[in-house]
């Protein structure tokens, strides 16, 4: 089958969704999935090279909070605020990344250092609660009614759908671009053997830093978009260890070595959470007077079991696993697992 036809067909379906009678609620879900997919794609750009960051919650939070704070306090439009947030996030990535790569902090040490970053940002948000609202969350001020191009705010889901779709598509394009670039070969070589790569002239720190900054900037953008769409952020919905882990896991579920893996991961994990939430509800189910079960925890519980199963039985994720069945294991990624 011709790939271009498939892409065109999928594109046409996605573009026409709002006109074929998709309700407001499913559309909302799709928008959320698209925004998260973009963040997950951003993570996997570095994660696929063994750079497992548990600090992306920090970049997400920087994206959302900096944009919203600039808008509310300085009146700076997100058109400028978002680039500032992204730049700041890039700077933070360099501050953390440079020494890490320079001093060869890799594997789970890298994961734990970046995890500290998630916590630092979360605690800073909580500590500055007078400005940021702390753990109760923060809302960008509404600018007028309906559409505000200045504030990138809208009541109109259809419009936001197209924005999110474009953002998501750009994410896939970036992923593909990295996949085709020379940097990919350099990074795969570094992952296989850092010393040998350095010996043949690969600039290890430089290459790792480039991909980390790109990944951080994308994630910050996702955080800002999330904030503009949901009009509410809190340290626990876009930051901290919880979100950092959520990002990693969605990618692991979807598949790390394929452009659409993170998207598939987002669809599966977010839909599952939603289906469980609606299906089971959040009411208490009381078996006896004393023993009540709180259904709100069920999605989390199932999510956890699913992740463990995936890592044990399908470490290449759904897309990777399916492709393996289809065309033999050799082509979906390096032999090493992240």
């Amino acid at each position: 089958m011709n790939n271009n036809i498939v892409i065109a067909a999928i594109g046409a379906i996605l573009l026409s969704l709002p006109f074929v009678g998709v309700d407001s609620y499913p559309l909302h879900l799709i928008i959320v999935i698209l925004i998260w997919s973009f963040a997950y794609t951003g993570w996997s750009i570095m994660g696929r090279f063994g750079l497992v960051s548990l600090g992306h919650g920090a970049f997400m939070a920087i994206g959302g909070y900096v944009t919203a704070l600039l808008w509310n306090n300085v009146g700076l439009t997100p058109w400028i605020g978002i680039p500032i947030a992204m730049a700041l996030s890039g700077v933070v990535a360099v501050i953390i990344g440079y020494p890490c790569f320079r001093f060869r902090i890799v594997g789970h040490y890298f994961a734990l250092v970046t995890l500290a970053l998630s916590e630092v940002v979360r605690q800073v948000i909580i500590a500055t609660r007078d400005t940021t609202g702390g753990s109760l969350g923060y809302t960008p001020e509404r600018h007028g009614e309906g559409w505000s191009i200045l504030a990138i705010q809208s009541d109109d889901r259809v419009a936001f759908y197209y924005i999110a779709l474009a953002v998501w598509a750009v994410g896939i394009v970036i992923w593909k671009a990295v996949d085709r670039s020379m940097a990919r070969y350099a990074l795969e070589a570094i992952w296989e053997d850092e010393d040998a790569s350095a010996a043949v002239g690969v600039r290890v720190t430089h290459e790792k830093l480039k991909v980390t900054v790109l990944s951080a900037v994308m994630t910050a953008f996702a955080g800002a978009m999330y904030c503009q769409y949901q009009m509410f952020i809190s340290p626990d919905t876009i930051g901290g260890v919880g979100i950092s882990l959520q990002i990693v896991f969605a990618v692991v579920v979807g598949g790390i070595y394929n452009a659409l893996g993170p998207t598939v991961g987002a669809v599966i994990t977010l839909l599952l959470a939603e289906v469980l939430r609606i299906g089971i509800g959040t009411e208490n189910i009381c078996i006896t007077d004393k023993i009540c079960l709180n259904a709100a925890g069920v999605p989390l519980l199932i999510y956890g079991v699913m992740l463990v199963m995936f890592i044990i039985f399908l470490p290449k994720g759904i897309v990777g696993g399916v492709l393996d069945r289809w065309r033999g294991p050799a082509q979906t990624g390096p032999s090493k697992q992240p």
């Binding site: 882990l245 990693v248 896991f249 079960l293 709180n294 259904a295 709100a296 925890g297 069920v298 999605p299 989390l300 519980l301 199932i302 999510y303 956890g304 079991v305 699913m306 992740l307 463990v308 995936f310 890592i311």
Partner: peptide, 14 residues
């Protein structure tokens, strides 16, 4: 990490 979510979820349910 998956177990973390599982244990949190279980505690919430129970």
């Amino acid at each position: 990490g998956g177990l973390l979510f599982f244990l949190q979820g279980s505690a919430m349910v129970a």
